[in-house]
């Protein structure tokens, strides 16, 4: 199976075909980082574009992400052996008081699909857990909130990052239903991301 076919199967969310394709590519001696960069990451970039353009929806994105993760799992041992570096380390969570996690999960999947190492902090994440993630090496923090009332936890987290003296060591991206670019500026975050695909692009720019 060619890299082009793996690419297409990720876009179409064909998990079994992606698994077979990645196995076959490895057996053919195609380097793991080539499979990752030219098939999986490129495919997820296309999925992100299709999502942004309204051509596909949450289910199709989930299918593609799951297919990508299946391929990525097969590549990981080979990638570790060749010491391929991740695109960066990101910690992401739904803020304290909020259990909404579909949006956050999509961002996690898209970031993984773009080659980032992602720590999923889960939901109802207190400020100190974000601080700890930065102390553990996260270069970017992602925060998600569904409601105006829980969005206030983003400000508390920003204050906690400053109080812990780690704010200058990390970039902060926020998103969610009531969140806007203006709110990001107001609380001193580095960026607002409108959806999972945009978030991936912004994270890449922030740590370039």
């Amino acid at each position: 199976m060619t890299l082009e076919q793996i690419f297409q199967n990720v876009v179409e969310g064909e998990m079994a075909a992606v698994e077979a394709g990645v196995r076959s590519a490895l057996e053919q001696g195609i380097p793991a980082d080539r499979i990752l960069n030219e098939a999986l990451i490129q495919a997820m970039a296309k999925v992100g574009r299709l999502f942004e353009e309204g051509e596909i929806f949450v289910p199709e994105m989930l299918f593609a992400a799951r297919a990508m993760q299946t391929g990525l799992k097969l590549l990981k041992p080979a990638l570790a052996a060749t010491d391929v570096q991740s695109a960066g380390k990101v910690a992401i969570g739904t803020v304290q008081g909020d259990l909404h996690d579909i949006g956050k999960n999509l961002v996690v999947m898209m970031l993984e699909g773009a080659g980032f190492e992602v720590e999923d902090l889960g939901t109802d994440v207190p400020p100190e857990k974000f601080v700890q993630a930065v102390q553990n090496g996260a270069q970017v923090i992602g925060m998600s909130a569904l409601l105006t009332t829980t969005m206030a936890s983003m400000l508390k987290t920003m204050e906690a990052l400053r109080a812990a003296g780690v704010r200058e060591h990390v970039k902060v991206v926020i998103g969610g239903a009531p969140v806007t670019d203006a709110y990001a500026r107001k609380i001193g975050a580095d960026a607002y991301a409108a959806d999972a695909s945009v978030a991936t692009r912004i994270v890449r720019q922030l740590i370039a």
Binding site: E52, G54, I56, F57, V58, P59, E60, G103, A177, A194, D195
Partner: peptide
Amino acid sequence: GFKSGPLISPKY
């Protein structure tokens, strides 16, 4: 819906 479109495809 969510912020930029329907949650699932209009087909579904």
